[in-house]
Design a protein around this nucleic acid. Structure first.
Lengths: 289, 289
DNA sequence: GAATATTTTATACTCATAGTATAAAAAAAG
DNA sequence: CTTTTTTTATACTATGAGTATAAAATATTC
């Protein structure tokens, strides 16, 4: 990246930190960076592409610092993990990234949303792996669940409206949450109390995206083949989903409501395995409309 | 509210559920409701005021249903609590409210943000109270912390990217989280491991908002009075905060970073009590810029 | 160093959307 | 039936993303 472009990026970053992403116009950026509009759109095809570059920098920075911390250290040292987590939280806070991330999650921009999603899932998986490092192999099957719980607790305690009443720094919050997880994790492992399917969680980035019609076809063939083992309610749900998928514009909010019920219906039945992939593809599809 | 206005509200609600809040333009709403722009702005002074009305309806609906559930029932029955929580989660999901809430939280609209904040804090307090109902008086001092943890865990497990890999319904998620809290809560009570200051948490809505100058003056007089008991680092922090408060436009992101360090510096010292209120007012001030 | 290619600038444009203004028409109230 | 209020239609302002383009500045190549 040439230094001129880097300069624009830094200017944008300054403004985003100060005024937030959506309140910063492209006009503001080009004034701050002292370039013309043409140049900006020569470097970035949109304001979003500009934030993508920033997010990628941040990711790089985080993972370098984290790896440095582990050099010559014990994997199983909880203090190191806390430091590693603190790094990310602090970068996010310093650079005011939470509001940006959140607005991306609910935006329409597919490419951007996918980037943030990947970052997020990588973080979940990274933390799960580190939890196993610390709490041992017996926690492997519930580590992803724990990881999600940890991130949820931390995020809530970091919420500006809660921080107003909190006594402490990011690190103290993380330590507080880790004490909670220590209490929970062994019992979860013992009772194998897990909500998340680990196999699906492994990120396979080159995975093929199925079209609406392909999904619809797969679901229909599953339906026809297994119709004798299906209960009435399941039949109704599948028929409904098919109907919705066959509209030109399937209604996301309806499918999002019905698909979990279907998943649940098949949980711990002989059809669970066969249905998992189809349902997974429906979700992937919903995610991109 | 007249039926015509109610009709507009329903139309708006339909569109928000389908397309989301920010992707629904006022134009869309007036077409759906078959009214003219003038009428819309006669009923609501802005698009935001329209969502306020919807959020208030939802709050009303939730609290009625929840109260119904408790009639003639045992306070300490965990199943009732789970049902009560499920109600809210389901309404939020059905009506696609999460993205709306989230975008409000990071919006500039003070009135709207305050409404959502109040709703949120009420929910935290309500849940804390219900946790005490169930787990007993000994959990009183850590109930607010637990409440926040519960909400954080649930919210994360409800996240669309996580739900993709989740086997289950909202209710199962809530039960899963409640099992975790059961494991945690007694130990927290025993060790009194708490991050949140309960006294501040009680909502006093008529509380006076101090201006920037009033806060600055209070902090300065605290500083002058206590200067002999202050450590160097504390002095530097206070001086810095004063400097920032005295700018015409104090930079929120800088203060947000420095204030928690100050809070922490005073935790468990003789100055904790005296500093708490000032710091609280600084937070309140940051919240409205 | 001249010719060519590229990057940058300035400026004017389109398009979408929130919100305002207003005069005429319709409906309600007295 | 007259007056007041509400509603409609329509045109307007303002903001901000993104496009288009011609001229100027800079870099590359021979």
């Amino acid at each position: 990246m040439n230094s001129r472009k880097k300069n624009v990026l830094l200017a944008a970053q300054r403004l985003f930190i100060e005024k937030g992403f959506s309140s910063t116009s492209v006009q503001d950026i080009i004034e701050e960076a002292k370039i013309s509009k043409g140049t900006f759109y020569n470097y970035f095809s949109s304001k979003n592409e500009c934030i993508v570059a920033i997010l990628e920098n941040v990711k790089e920075e985080t993972s370098i610092k984290r790896r440095e911390l582990l050099v010559q250290q014990n994997d199983a040292d909880l203090n190191i993990l806390v430091e590693q987590m603190t790094i990310r939280m602090n970068i996010y806070q310093d650079q005011n990234l939470y509001p940006i991330i959140v607005s991306i999650i609910h935006s329409q921009d597919l490419e951007l949303r996918d980037l943030v999603k990947m970052n997020y899932l990588e973080e979940v998986n990274w933390l799960a792996k580190r939890l196993v490092d610390i709490f041992g192999e017996q926690t492997k099957d519930i580590a992803v669940d724990c990881s999600v719980l940890v991130l949820g607790m931390i995020q809530q305690l970091q919420h500006p409206w809660i921080r107003q009443y909190t006594k402490v720094s990011t690190e103290k919050i993380i330590r507080f949450v880790m004490r909670r997880i220590e209490t929970i994790i062994y019992e979860m492992a013992r009772t194998n109390d897990s909500l998340l399917k680990r196999p699906c969680f492994e990120l396979n980035t080159e995975e093929k995206l199925l079209t609406k019609d392909e999904i619809s076809k797969q679901l229909e063939s599953f339906y026809l083949k297994e119709i004798n083992s299906l209960k009435l309610k399941e039949i109704q749900m599948i028929e409904y989903i098919l109907e919705e998928l066959n509209r030109e514009q399937p209604r996301k909010f309806l499918l999002e409501k019905i698909v979990p019920s279907l998943t649940e219906a098949f949980t711990n039945t002989s059809l669970e395995h066969k249905s998992t992939m189809i349902i997974y593809h429906i979700w992937k599809f919903l995610d991109r409309i």
